[in-house]
Simulated assay, not measured.
Amino acid sequence: MRNLLWVCLSACLVLPLRAAARNENPAQLAESKTVKLNPLPLDHVRLTGGPLKAAQEADAKYLLELQPDRMLAFLRQRAGLKPKAEGYGGWDGPKRNLTGHIAGHYLSAVSLMWAATGDARFKDRANYIVDQLKEIQDAQGDGYIGALEDGQGVDGKQRFVDLSNGVIKSGGFDLNGLWSPWYVEHKLFAGLRDAYRYTGNETALQVEIKFAGWVEKILSKLDDDQLQRMLGTEFGGMNEVLAE
């Protein structure tokens, strides 16, 4: 303990004296000695055994059991395209509060699993979903991707238009009759970002840029007070993905 204290005291004395002798700023000298740490890329690490490997394999098995076309069903339907499979139920089911968000979660998951394992099956799934989202976006025609609708059956896309026109009924989880719509859209944004970041899919980036352009059109008409009222409803990580 005494040795450690002596080392700390010596450092506190030596750096300023050394800096003074060289006519240097002690703070700048200390900063120059700082070691900056960067996160290790996910694809630089491979699990080889133990409980973490077992958990990863269980996760991979589950991901491969899920069917992308079922996740995309209501997104296709809202874009006027024929679904390729029956959609999933639960919170992602038809006319539910979070319809369409599972596809974004899943796109993030398979992109991360590709980076963590190098298993091409996950990259193939990421590429497929990105291609499907591009088709859906093209069918929508304005950059939008979504499957929400309110309790009266009104397309969530129209409720976003209402928002753009200054109609803001915001509180807790509800925004203009939709349950946390920006939270739901964020999942799709995050999935596209992760597909680009971890699999290198350039189409994902282009789709996301167009998607962000749609957001800009919706929000650009609102002043600061209106934006703050809108933010009274949970918005997920939209600020994160738009900044990135």
Rank of each mutant, 00 (worst) to 15 (best):
Q158R: 10
N97L: 12
V207C: 04
L13N: 06
I129K: 02
R121E: 10
N25R: 12
L242H: 04
Y196I: 01
E185K: 05
N239K: 14
A19Y: 01
L175H: 02
Q67Y: 06
R70S: 15
L66Q: 12
V241C: 01
G90M: 11
R197C: 01
G146W: 02
I102G: 00
Q28P: 00
E234C: 00
A73L: 09
K210M: 11
G153P: 06
W182P: 01
F122L: 09
D224R: 14
R197G: 00
L107V: 09
L40G: 08
R96M: 12
K53W: 10
E202T: 13
L81K: 03
K53S: 13
V45N: 07
T48E: 14
P94A: 09
P181N: 08
W182I: 03
D174Y: 07
F122R: 02
I218S: 00
K187H: 14
L107P: 00
H44A: 15
P16G: 11
D194M: 09
Q67L: 08
E216S: 13
G49T: 06
K221P: 01
F211H: 11
T203M: 12
G237W: 04
V154C: 01
P94Y: 09
A109L: 10
A109G: 05
V45C: 10
T99R: 06
G153R: 06
I209M: 14
I102Q: 01
L175W: 00
T199L: 07
R46N: 07
E57D: 15
A19I: 04
L66R: 09
L17P: 03
G237T: 06
L112R: 08
D138Y: 03
V45Q: 10
G49L: 05
H101W: 10
S10K: 08
L219G: 04
L63R: 06
V154K: 06
V7F: 11
R46L: 09
L5D: 13
R2M: 11
D225R: 14
M230S: 06
N3L: 13
K187C: 03
A120L: 12
M71E: 06
A58W: 03
A19M: 03
E216P: 02
G171C: 05
H101M: 12
K61G: 08
L222Y: 02
Q140L: 05
A55H: 11
G232Q: 10
G177F: 04
G143L: 06
L5V: 13
M230L: 15
L15H: 01
A60T: 07
V45F: 12
C12G: 10
G232I: 00
S108M: 07
Y196D: 12
S108P: 00
D138K: 13
R159A: 01
A195I: 03
S164N: 06
G146S: 07
S32H: 13
F173L: 12
A243E: 13
V161Y: 12
K169G: 07
A20R: 13
V184N: 05
R229G: 02
P83K: 09
L42C: 07
I102N: 03
A79W: 00
T99Y: 03
Q158A: 12
H105D: 15
T233G: 01
L219Y: 13
M238L: 14
S111I: 06
Q228Y: 11
H101R: 11
A85H: 08
G49V: 09
A21I: 09
N25F: 07
G213T: 08
I129E: 01
F160L: 14
G177S: 10
G104M: 04
R197P: 00
